[in-house]
């Protein structure tokens, strides 16, 4: 028993703690939202000069806020871990929301613009990201295999490509492709240019991820398959790649999420995606912050969805082949 920190809890404890935390959340709420009203009157009544009331009220609210946080951290030490996690999430989320409310944002404006922001902006962002990541993955796979090839030309092309596209800023690549391709006689619309640039750049990065995955498969797997008479191509496809794929799910998910936000860079060539739309809509009515926060929220929601999907895929790979 002495070796484990895991404790047993009674359900009554949980209920008491949940009630306590409810009160706690109310505390936060009053401290930050209500600080203008009752906290100021209270601070004023103590005899603070009217000029300083606002500052004092703010200081008091922060101090009490920190105290409440510390008390909650102490209480959380006494509950099961899942509850600690949940409450910590809630508290941090609340603080974030409270921080946002200090901007005095115009909710009506946000609600009016949100549908268009999602149907045009978020849709374009997702569309560009999904197509780019699919292309990038195929490109990365071919490049990773070419890098291990015994053929010098294949390896040369692969390493040159990786070096070039990892070595230039993505923003520059987008500009160069957009301005350069017409010189070669290809006049391409902004969205395809954006997709090509993202796919090329991320293909270079992900090929290294896939190469790492391939190298992580033990050499013995190659030997066993070759000894059975399989060709190298068959070993790669049937034995090595399936195992490498499982290893690279987390880093590929990482790149997917990263690309979701880097896709905002294609706005420079005039693609109406989420960031571009939010800044133009905001500019028009001088409500920049409203639109930027909304775009941030939409990005975050999409990212959370992707994280859940990634966890699902990982879980499926894990349970199918108990390892």
């Amino acid at each position: 028993m002495a070796f484990t920190t895991r404790k047993t809890y009674r359900w009554q404890t949980t209920i008491v703690v949940v009630i306590f935390l409810f009160v706690l959340i109310l505390c936060y709420w009053f401290l930050f939202i209500g600080q203008q009203a009752w906290l100021s009157t209270w601070v004023g009544a103590v005899g603070v000069a009217p000029d300083n009331v606002a500052t004092y009220a703010k200081a008091v609210s922060w101090l009490v806020g920190i105290a409440v946080f510390l008390v909650s951290a102490y209480v959380l030490g006494k509950v099961p871990k899942w509850l600690q996690l949940l409450v910590t999430y809630l508290e941090l989320l609340m603080l974030l929301v409270l921080f946002m409310t200090t901007f005095n944002i115009d909710m009506d404006f946000i609600l009016r613009k949100l549908p268009f922001l999602i149907t045009q902006g978020a849709f374009t962002t997702l569309y560009v990201t999904v197509v780019s990541i699919a292309l990038a993955f195929c490109l990365a796979l071919v490049t990773a295999i070419a890098r291990r090839s015994s053929n010098g030309v294949a390896e040369g092309i692969a390493t040159f490509y990786i070096s070039l596209f990892r070595g230039l800023p993505l923003l520059l690549q987008i500009f160069i492709l957009y301005l350069g391709l017409p010189q070669l006689g290809f006049v391409i619309k902004p969205i395809p240019v954006g997709i090509i640039a993202l796919a090329l750049c991320y293909g270079a990065y992900m090929s290294e991820v896939i190469r790492a995955g391939i190298q992580a498969v033990p050499l013995g797997q190659w030997e066993a398959a070759l000894a059975l008479g399989l060709q190298r191509r068959q070993v790669m496809r049937r034995i090595v790649l399936p195992q490498a794929l499982k290893i690279i799910i987390p880093p590929v998910g990482n790149h997917f999420i990263s690309m979701l936000k880097d896709s905002s860079l294609v706005s420079v060539v005039g693609v109406w995606e989420l960031t571009y739309l939010s800044s133009t809509l905001g500019n028009r009515d001088f409500k920049n912050l409203e639109m930027l926060i909304t775009a941030a929220g939409v990005y975050w929601v999409i990212t959370i969805t992707l994280e859940v999907v990634q966890r699902r895929i990982e879980h499926r790979f894990d349970s199918a082949r108990t390892r």
Partner: peptide
């Protein structure tokens, strides 16, 4: 020829 290895090398998937 068949070969059997010290570390089995079965395909885990």
């Amino acid at each position: 020829t068949g070969m059997v290895f010290q570390s089995f090398n079965l395909f885990p998937h």
